[in-house]
Structures are given as structure tokens and as C-alpha cells.
Design a protein around this nucleic acid. Structure first.
Lengths: 322, 322
DNA sequence: TTGTAAGCGTTATCAG
DNA sequence: CTGATAACGCTTACAA
């Protein structure tokens, strides 16, 4: 059925090894130009394609990497996954995406990482207790990385402060913070920045807490909040999806953006540019982060016992016309 | 390092086969409850995880499927990929996404499908000449499917007609159609519907042609168009990204939506609901399409020589407040 | 420069 | 019910 090394070898009266060597053209191996030509021609004509499983079994390497994030439905994480896809493609690696919760690291779990045949894992997001037991290389990225893995941190704190301060400075009397309760922790830059700026300005912090990070949740929650508490005139949102959901929820009630409320999102997804008015947001330097994460992982793939690699990138507040 | 069947077998003084049988619990195999228990316990304790590559090599099955679409940057295709991810997860299949152009089917291509170790391929979108030479099972889905593969068609024609007619009936004098030149073909339901309705109403068709399907392209192109041709008062867009780009481009020029121009998109991505005003669009029954595509593929995975499977789903025009 | 032999971790087949 | 043995297709190490 499918063509194997052996088929080519027999066809050409050479050994499998000769064929293998030609097809992998390892620089360390020497083959006469004549046989090289013959083998390549035969492989092409016969339509040879290597059996990845066999290669993986023999070498112990799958050339497959997982990218895990909290939620594949989030546009931001899709943008990250995409960037990785493009980057890894250049290096002939496959990427397979998954969600942190579902893709538990332990080998007991039927869909667990250790059962997937991976060379390594890229993770956006933190709180990954279960991953300490995953044996392969892991690079963690995001605003609050694990202390045990290689890490590409992104610092949201300065930009978050600027965002909240800008809202106050440009006239907002009540600036609220939208974020799910699960993220209301001191390790969250956005939360901490909001709380501290509020305190410095003697403002009462107001938290609007959708049950999750989805647009739909933010849309509902903001409406309930406004009905019972009245409407803030500034809204610092923990991510762009929440900001977009809030925007829609406010418009549902006839509240004007930005006249009555100004919003600032976080992460910098494409969608924010296409709203009307375009939404201000805190942009993460994704390209830089992804490139570096991949470099970290490649290095560790080559040499497992490196000292821990880490770096920190700076997110940037982008104010759009309003 | 990692635990194998052999390790467990030696630890328990049984054969690898016994361990293998227990761990796969094939109903056809009979094992005493006692040994079953012992094996399962040992596997758990020792942290056994099967080697996927070895399994694949032995069985010839990878439990891995590719999902290919024209562009991974498109939000719509991301939504499709997502649905497949969820669906296949239930059946313990992995999914790996790619783009049609890059992932050529032939074995010559280094990143070609036949080199990826796949059980089958799901493709959204048409024009896939090169895929006839891919040997594995293929299910094609979308508005203009291949005639040679199993197919889940979606019929955009009736909804497209309704869309254009609705724009005219509700008062539009000039309804233009935005679509990239590459799609300006009779096999495209949207193009055909627009052209025919225009003709039936003795209207001059107006085509606005961004170079590709991106928001940015639509945003630029609409502005150039309006500057030279004036502004249509109805816009039927070949997909939601174009519609969103056009919306932004119009707003850039101070043109009011929907007062001066009304837009209708196509595909039904989540973003359309969150614009202000929410955007009308033609919604594809994604859940139905994906479920069926996967059923088709599973069937063909089991039994290769089925007659060609095919079905057609109906897209639906959703008019949102405007 | 090329070939031979062994092994990677599973599963299939056939004996016991 | 359980165990040996032979694949699966490739690469690594070592011989020639």
C-alpha cells in the first residue's frame, strides 16, 4: 500500500540505510552523488512519505508540541495559538492546541499530556499546579508564570496603572473594574493596579464580577450591575472580551460609549480596533513573547539541564480616539 | 526513564501481552479479575502512559485528524476548528489545524499531509485540486464542496437572495457586494444570488473587491471605493470579517451605520452580535455541519469503500435590529 | 561510502 | 485465560 524505505531499497538494490541516509541528508554521512540522485528520484516517483510514528519510535522525538491555554474560545488565545503555529511551522514542528483543565498533565487522565506523544509544552496562563508532574519540557508564558518552569512573563502592572489613572485624569468620577472573581487576587497585575490607584486617589473600588471571561457573561453582568448600582463612567476591563461584552451590554441599555462611559480593555485583540469607537486596550507584545517562548523551548529540547530561562516583556497601553 | 508495558510485565511476572490486554480492555479478551486488578494497580502506581508512536506503528492508526481551512486567521474558521476540537475530544481523537495552501497533499512537500501521520482530513472550503492525490479519507465541507469527497454542503443561496432582497425592499437604492476577486465566480452562492437579484430588479451590480478576506483589506478598499464612486446604501458582504472591516472603514469616514448604509455579513461569527448596532448576517448551522462531517469521516475510517456520503445544510439569514 | 543487526514500545497471531 | 514470537518502519551503532 504505502511506500516504505524498504520498498525503495529493494527497487534500487541498495540497503534501507542508504535510502534513509539520503532522504535525511545528514551532513555527517557521505554518499556518492550518483546513488543520492537515484534514491531521490525513486523516492519522488514512488511517492515516498516517511512514517512519522516509526520515526518517532526510533528517535524518541515526535516533533510535536502542545499549546495549552485556559480557553480555546477566547480570541486572544486563538491569536497566540496562531502565532505559534506559524513560528513552529518554520521549524517543521506540529502544534496541537488544548485547554489547561482538560489536558491534565498526569498519566492517569485518558487525555493527559503524557499520553499525547509530545516533545514539549507551551502554556499561556498560570495556576498550573498539576503540571509540576509532567516530565517533559514546559515553557510558561503570561502575566503570572510558574516559578518552576522556563518563563516568558508579561508585566501588565505599569500599563494597568496608566489605564486607570488616565480614566481618572480625564474626568471619570467612578472607575469600576470588571473581572471574574477567580482572578481577584493579588497576583493579578490588573487587579492590584486598579486597587492601588483607587486607594491612592481615595476612591472606592467597584468590582463587577462576571462568572467567567466570556463576552456573554460580561454583557449580562454589567446590566445587572448598572441596574442596581447605577453606571460608572470609567471601566477598566481585565480583558478585551469582557470589555466588548460590557460595551454591548451598555449599548443594550442605551448608554453611550464613550460619552457616558469610557472603556479600556486588555490584551490587544484585533477586534478592539474594529469597534465604534475603537476601543483602548493594553497590548501584549505577542510576537516577541511567542518567539522567545519558542526559543526557550528549543534550547531545552536540545539540552534538558539548562538553568531556568526567564524574561519579562512589557505590555503597552494604547489609547484610541475617545 | 518512562514506564513501558515491559516494565510492568516484569514487575508483575506476567507477559507484556497480558498487560497490554488489560490496559486496552478489549471485550474479546478474557482475563481473570485478579490479574486485571494487579495490572491496573501497577500501571497506576508506576505512572504508565502508552507510547502513542508505538501504538500507531503497530496498529497503523494515529487517532489524529487534520482540520484544514483557507485561513487560520479568520475568526469563522477558528470557530469551526474549535467545534471540531470539542467533538473529536469526546472520541479521543486529536485534531491539528492547518491552512490549505501550506498543507499541500502531495508527499513531495515537506509539510505535506501524507507526512503528518493522519487518519483522515476534514476540510472547510473548496478549490482543492491538489487533494485528489491524498490517499487517506477526506471529508469536505462548505459552500462549494468537491465532487469527489464525502461532503457536507452548506447552501448559502437562498439566504443570500433574501439578504439582498431585504436590503432593496427596505429602501436601499444602491446595494453593493463586497468580495475578493478570487471568489467572483458562478460557483459562489453569494455572488450568484447578488448578481441575479440585481438583474431581476434592473439594478447595476456594484462590486467592491478587497485583495483578500481580511478586515484590514475591507477597511481600506471600502474607503477607496466610496471616495471614487460615492457611497452605496446597502452592502452585502461575502463574509463577516469583510463586513466588520467595511463597517470600520465607513465609520472612519464618518458615514453612519445603519442610517446611511446598512450591512449584511455572512457566516455568523460571534463578533457580529457585539457590534453597535449588532450586525445582520447569514448564519451557518455549524454544530450540525461539524457533527455530520465527523460522522462521515468516522464511517469512512471504519470502512473505506463506502459509497460517497453527502448532505446539504441550509444557512439562515438573521436580521438584527436596524 | 555502504551494509548489517538490533532495538524503539506496541499489537496481532497463533500456541498452549 | 495466558504467553511466545513476529511484525510495524525507522534510526543508531558498528562493521565492512
Amino acid at each position: 500500500m504505502t511506500v516504505t524505505l524498504k520498498d525503495i531499497a529493494e527497487h534500487l538494490n541498495v540497503s534501507k540505510m542508504t535510502v534513509s541516509r539520503v532522504l535525511n541528508n545528514k551532513s555527517s554521512d557521505f554518499i556518492t552523488e550518483a546513488t543520492r540522485q537515484r534514491v531521490q528520484e525513486a523516492a519522488r516517483v514512488m511517492g515516498y512519505a516517511p512514517n512519522r510514528a516509526a520515526q518517532a519510535l526510533a528517535t524518541g522525538q515526535t516533533r510535536r508540541i502542545a499549546f495549552l491555554s485556559p480557553s480555546m474560545g477566547s480570541r486572544f488565545f486563538q491569536e497566540v495559538a496562531n502565532r505559534f503555529h506559524q513560528i513552529l511551522l518554520n521549524d517543521k514542528y506540529e502544534i496541537i492546541s488544548g485547554e489547561l483543565d482538560r489536558q491534565a498533565a498526569d498519566s492517569t487522565h485518558p487525555g493527559g499530556l503524557s499520553r499525547m506523544g509530545l516533545d514539549g509544552v507551551l502554556i499561556y496562563g498560570g495556576r498550573l499546579g498539576s503540571f509540576v508532574e509532567y516530565k517533559g519540557p514546559v515553557v510558561n508564558m503570561g502575566p503570572h508564570c510558574s516559578e518552576v518552569f522556563d518563563a516568558v512573563n508579561v508585566d501588565l502592572y505599569p500599563a494597568s496603572r496608566q489605564a486607570v489613572e488616565w480614566l481618572f485624569e480625564t474626568g471619570a468620577k467612578r472607575v469600576a473594574h470588571i473581572l471574574p472573581p477567580s482572578a481577584q487576587n493579588d497576583w493579578d497585575d490588573r487587579y492590584r493596579a486598579y486597587r492601588e490607584v483607587s486607594r491612592e486617589r481615595d476612591k472606592n473600588p467597584e468590582y463587577i464580577q462576571p462568572p467567567d471571561w466570556s463576552r456573554a457573561a460580561a454583557r449580562n453582568t454589567i446590566q445587572e450591575y448598572v441596574k442596581t448600582h447605577g453606571c460608572p463612567d470609567g471601566l477598566f476591563c481585565a480583558n478585551d472580551d469582557l470589555a466588548i461584552g460590557a460595551y454591548r451590554g451598555l449599548r443594550d441599555m442605551g448608554i453611550r460609549v464613550p460619552d457616558q462611559v469610557r472603556l479600556i480593555g486588555c490584551d490587544g485583540i484585533e477586534d478592539t480596533e474594529y469597534l465604534d469607537p475603537p476601543m483602548s486596550t493594553i497590548v501584549q507584545p505577542l510576537e516577541e513573547m511567542c518567539k522567545n517562548a519558542w526559543e526557550f523551548l528549543k534550547r531545552r529540547l536540545k539540552k534538558g539541564n539548562l538553568p531556568r530561562q526567564r524574561m519579562t516583556c512589557e505590555a503597552q497601553l494604547i489609547l484610541r480616539e475617545q
